[in-house]
Every structure is written in structure tokens, then in C-alpha cells.
Computed example of a mutant assay.
Amino acid sequence: MTDNTSTSRVQHIRHEIVRRTLDVVSVEEISPNFKRIILSGDSLDTFISSSFDDHIKFFFDNGTDEPAMRDYTPRSYSNEKKELVVEFAMHGEGPANDWAEKVKVGDIAKIGGPRGSRVIPMDYQWQLMFGDETAFPAISRRLEELPAGARVTVVALANNPQDRREFPTQADAEIIWVDSSEQLIEWANQHQLAAGEGFVWCAAEASIIKALRNIFVEEKGHDVNAIRTSAYWKMRTAAFHEEVQ
């Protein structure tokens, strides 16, 4: 049981919302259900993404006056190269999936944001990260950014074992793969939190996130100011993205 009385050390940063029209310069299938797409454009010289789990909005034409909008994590970017890398988890339906299935070099992409960042410090004594496939880009980026010596355990859900990936990092990282949401939740149930100040980060389907937050906050008494729980999607619900508190 951890002390639940600290104040948050997460820094909230607001960004000017900028819409950009970018060129697709590379399309790569990195596993059966993931595509890595590199976008380029002069306007990326001012692009800002201050946190590994930021999200940008993609705007997709859908034959109506209002485009369909979907949130995606900036996997990486370079102001100098004027490039932005985004990874698409392919779920087989919806405007984003349709676009990513058909996209080719020379196409354009319309994006907006990020509108803000929540910067989670890297100097916690330990960190736990939970995620399904939609969280892999954010997890990858966080592990790349963590310094040597940082202690982090990642519990990652891949329904298809072929979507498992390497997570390059300098950190002291333990990667645990599971095959189902039940296994992921059971691991959290059985896990005993380490001593010292730690941070828990979770991003996945809404029902998984609700269960994880209940386990860590209600059952294990983890500090509410040292956990972030984000529902990146919800079963049978389009365009869903929600912070769970």
C-alpha cells in the first residue's frame, strides 16, 4: 500500500493548435498489423511534441462536409528533417484503417496538434507501463527516451504474436508479453508494487483501463497523482479517446 497524499509532478504544457497538410514519403509494414508512415512538410519545422503519449488528430475525407477525425501518437519527429513518423495499428475497419490500407508515397495527410502535453518525469524510482497494440508507439517512444538506469516494467498485449516487437532502450527494462486482456489484468492483480516513488502508465481499450485503474488506485492504494490511465479506444465505438479518472 502506497501513500496517497503526494502532489502531481506531471507538467501540463499547452501548445498552439496548428493544422498541417503533409506529404507521405514512406510507407512500411513493420508487422502483420502495423504500418509505419513517414510524413514530411516545411511546416514541421515548428512541430512540437513534448511527451511520449501526446496525440495528433488525423483528418480523413469521408464523403461528408465534416471529416472523420482519429487520434494517433507522434512516434518520432525531426524539426531539422521536417519529418513526422506515425505508426498505425490496423484493425480492419474505419476511415483511418481504410486510409492506411491504401496510402502510398506521394499521397497527402491532414493533421492537427498536438494541443498539449503531459510531461511525466523520468526520475521515478520505478515505472510500470501497460498497453495493448494501440499503445505500442507511445511505449516505444518512452523507452527510447528513458535514461540509463531508469527502472521500468512493460506489460504489453499483442493478440497476434507476430506483432511483438523489440523496444530499444538504455533503461533497466523488463518486457512482459501477454496474449489476452485477461492475462494483462491478472498480471496487474498479482503484482506487488515496489517500495519508493513510482509511476503507473496505462493505455489500452476502455474496459481494460477501467480494470487497471481500479486495481492500482482502489485496491492497491497507489497515489492518484502518479498514475495515468488513457482509454485509446472502446469496443464497438468509433473515434473514442478518453482519460479515465
Score class of each variant (00 low, 15 high):
3 D>C: 07
9 R>K: 15
10 V>Y: 04
10 V>L: 00
13 I>E: 07
16 E>F: 00
25 V>I: 10
27 V>T: 07
30 I>A: 04
30 I>T: 15
34 F>Y: 14
38 I>Y: 04
44 L>M: 09
48 I>K: 15
51 S>Y: 05
54 D>F: 03
54 D>L: 01
62 N>E: 09
64 T>C: 01
65 D>H: 06
67 P>T: 03
70 R>M: 14
71 D>V: 02
74 P>G: 08
79 N>I: 03
82 K>G: 03
84 L>T: 01
91 H>K: 02
91 H>F: 00
98 D>S: 14
103 V>A: 09
105 V>Q: 04
105 V>I: 11
115 R>M: 00
121 P>G: 05
137 P>S: 14
144 E>I: 02
146 L>Y: 08
150 A>W: 08
150 A>Q: 10
152 V>Y: 04
153 T>M: 10
156 A>F: 09
163 D>T: 01
165 R>V: 11
166 E>D: 14
168 P>R: 05
169 T>K: 12
170 Q>S: 13
173 A>F: 05
175 I>K: 03
183 Q>A: 06
185 I>P: 00
186 E>C: 13
186 E>L: 15
190 Q>A: 11
191 H>A: 01
200 V>E: 14
206 A>S: 15
206 A>Q: 14
211 A>S: 10
220 K>I: 08
223 D>Q: 07
226 A>V: 08
230 S>W: 14
231 A>D: 14
239 A>K: 10
